[in-house]
Design a protein around this nucleic acid. Structure first.
Length: 359
DNA sequence: CTAGGGTTAG
């Protein structure tokens, strides 16, 4: 019940249940509170519970480790990992390693990642898929693509997740063609791609400018693999089409989506409209963005700039009035400089909906 | 109760 409330984000209820529990020594109960608060982003509360635990097991330690990483506190995660290895009377397992390697990735701490890699080779479970995949991912994110390839080739079994890590690694490093080659190889080996595979492949297409192949993938994921595209797939497609200058196709795709697109899709479109000087679609994209977030200045400014570039000054002032009517708050820009030990702060113009001087 | 893979604009 405690973990039920915790996973639903009702920490108040979870805490009530926790207090009423008959067995106070139960590590499972305490760990549910720790991970519940970690998931809710309340690291301090989570650690209060962890410190107060009468009995800790490996899962409790892993919950703290994973929680720190999730809440972008990788340094703390690594600190906990050191104490875990040194003086906690628990032996790390796969999930310990996954979390700590992800922590290394977030810090781009390649040296430390390598050290942990060397150290974990000796462990009995080091050859499992999960550990291998975590290593591949860590090497990719720390910029050592060669290291990632080595780990990948050492793996005895490679499931979808392992392939996805390698494919997206190539895609992230701008080697879209190699990513696509891996994708073909994966299919050849009989591993079924899943929805995340296609996000990685579409990303690779974006980076490599392979518009037609991307469209082909998008279609085949539905027809050949029965995977329904999600918001992220649509976002990739919008980006792909926009970069190729196919604005109309991109708008049609957005219109055909069975759900609301991610706001960034409109942002991508708007930016592309500026490049390709398309006023009609710019109005459409900016309108949607403003509808979703009328107080934010970004879309108005973009739109006004597009009109200005087309010498449509009447429209520029229309956008300005529109901004005023919606009481747009422009977050003021700050800058500071240190002169002889004194910090001088400057604040940009904050009021006034002057679309030209913004940006 | 913990734990491996994911993207894009400016």
């Amino acid at each position: 019940m405690v973990s039920g409330f915790a996973s639903a984000g009702h920490m108040g209820m979870a805490e009530e249940c926790f207090r009423d529990a008959p067995e106070k020594e139960d590590a499972v109960l305490w760990t549910a509170m720790v991970s519940g608060y970690m998931d809710a982003g309340n690291v301090d509360k989570a650690m209060e519970f962890f410190q107060a635990m009468p009995v800790r097991n490996l899962v409790s330690w892993n919950a703290v480790l994973a929680g720190y990483v999730k809440n972008s506190r990788a340094e703390d995660a690594l600190r906990v990992f050191k104490t875990l290895v040194r003086d906690a009377n628990v032996r790390p397992n796969e999930s310990t390693l996954s979390s700590v390697l992800l922590g290394c990735s977030n810090l781009s701490a390649l040296g430390l990642g390598r050290q942990i890699h060397q150290w974990c080779v000796k462990l009995p479970f080091s050859r499992r898929v999960t550990v291998g995949t975590s290593l591949v991912s860590m090497y990719c994110k720390c910029g050592d693509l060669e290291g990632a390839c080595k780990r990948f080739s050492e793996m005895r079994t490679r499931d979808v997740v392992a392939w996805n890590a390698m494919i997206s690694g190539y895609a992230q490093h701008g080697d879209g063609r190699e990513a696509i080659r891996m994708f073909e190889k994966m299919k050849h080996k009989g591993v079924e791609p899943n929805c995340i595979t296609f996000v990685a492949v579409l990303t690779a297409c974006i980076h490599t400018g392979l518009c037609d192949f991307g469209i082909q993938c998008f279609e085949s994921m539905q027809e050949a693999y029965g995977i329904e595209p999600r918001v992220d797939h649509y976002s990739c497609m919008v980006d792909l089409l926009c970069r190729a200058g196919l604005l109309e196709r991109s708008v049609n795709l957005i219109r055909s989506m069975p759900f609301e697109p991610h706001p960034s899709a409109y942002g991508t479109l708007l930016a592309a409209c500026r490049v390709y000087k398309n006023l009609e679609f710019a109005e459409f994209a900016a309108g949607k963005l403003i509808e979703q977030n009328p107080q934010s200045a970004g879309a108005y400014v973009q739109l006004a700039n597009i009109y200005a570039a087309a010498n449509q000054w009447a429209n520029v002032s229309r956008v300005r009035r529109w901004m005023k009517d919606n009481a747009v708050v422009k977050t003021p820009g700050y800058s500071w400089v240190e002169i002889k030990g004194v910090i001088h702060e400057f604040r940009g113009e904050s009021e006034g909906a002057n679309a030209n001087e913004a940006q």
